[in-house]
């Protein structure tokens, strides 16, 4: 396995940071998670929006017990990532603060929080909704642009080099199934995915 091979999953976090910026001038800049909360920050309707989305239905049942943060594998090693805090900001309506939060992108989607929540809040799904909403607003880490464009062009998330395909044949593995870029483009158009991806690239 060649070390110089570009593995998108091993990209340094700087790229991620670079990507996480909205179109200039369109959105407020990132608000520090610890900054005092000002009156104009509140969007009380936000929680209703989120709970109307698939996976967010139970959001408002949260009683802030901290189980999600306590059992989050990432939170145990991160100084900033706290799933409960993301839920809290959503419930309070601190929309810009939560959508521009860099920690939003630290969820590993292991679903431990979802499985253990005593109030059946699908924490990981709420975070996915927040991420989807952030992307709509133009915030998206670089890695997802790469994964997304690869899927559109090849059908799969990683571009598999020819060398590897040849090696498969050598060791007697059957050839890989074909991708269908044409179908991918159609689906991406229908779901609005291609638009989101373009927005991310412009940013």
């Amino acid at each position: 396995m060649s070390k110089t091979q570009s593995n998108p999953r091993e990209r340094p976090s700087e790229t991620a940071k670079k990507g996480l910026r909205a179109k200039s001038g369109e959105e407020t800049a990132e608000i520090s998670a610890t900054a005092p909360i000002r009156a104009q920050e509140f969007d009380p309707h936000f929680k209703h929006e989120v709970s109307k989305t698939h996976g967010g239905e139970k959001l408002k049942q949260c009683f802030q017990c901290g189980t999600c943060t306590s059992d989050c594998p990432i939170a145990r090693f991160s100084d900033s990532y706290r799933p409960r805090t993301l839920i809290r900001m959503t419930l309070l309506g601190l929309k810009d603060r939560v959508l521009t939060s860099e920690t939003l992108w630290l969820c590993a989607a292991c679903f431990t929080c979802t499985d253990r929540c005593p109030q059946d809040v699908e924490v990981a799904s709420v975070i996915r909704i927040l991420r989807n909403t952030a992307v709509e607003k133009g915030y998206m880490p670089q890695i997802f642009k790469e994964l997304g464009s690869s899927i559109l062009e090849t059908g799969v998330a990683y571009r598999i080099p020819d060398l590897r395909l040849k090696k498969r044949a050598q060791i007697g593995l059957p050839p890989l199934p074909k991708g269908n870029p044409e179908a991918m483009t159609k689906l991406a158009k229908a779901t609005g995915f291609s638009k989101l991806l373009k927005r991310g690239e412009q940013a």
């Binding site: 802030q64 017990c65 901290g66 943060t69 306590s70 989050c72 939170a75 706290r82 409960r84 805090t85």
Partner: peptide, 12 residues
Amino acid sequence: IRAEDMTLGQPI
């Protein structure tokens, strides 16, 4: 015991 100390906002 694993918990989040809610007042500090930190897992403990």
